[in-house]
């Protein structure tokens, strides 16, 4: 699984970072980004949880 954060949609709610620090980082301005190339299989549920909690619908699945 590959995911990305759309920087134009992300407003820095930081829900993804709070839910899955293994997958996301945030900068000082709240902008979030994905820090792994491939989501490890055991973290796919965490990725889906982050996606389902983003109030801006900013996290996309690039490939399953």
């Amino acid at each position: 699984m590959k995911i990305r954060v759309d920087p134009d949609k992300c407003q820095g709610h930081a829900r993804c970072y709070d839910l899955a620090r293994e997958l996301f980082d945030v900068d000082d301005y709240g902008q979030s980004s994905v820090i792994v190339d491939q989501v490890p299989a055991e973290l796919e549920d965490n990725a889906r949880l982050a996606i389902a909690n983003c109030p801006e619908y900013a996290i996309e699945i690039i490939s399953e």
């Binding site: 407003q11 820095g12 709610h13 709240g30 949880l49 389902a52 909690n53 983003c54 109030p55 801006e56």
Partner: peptide, 14 residues
Amino acid sequence: AHNRHVAFGSGIHR
């Protein structure tokens, strides 16, 4: 588990 709430707003004024 799924909670996309907007208590802190939505959009550029988050």
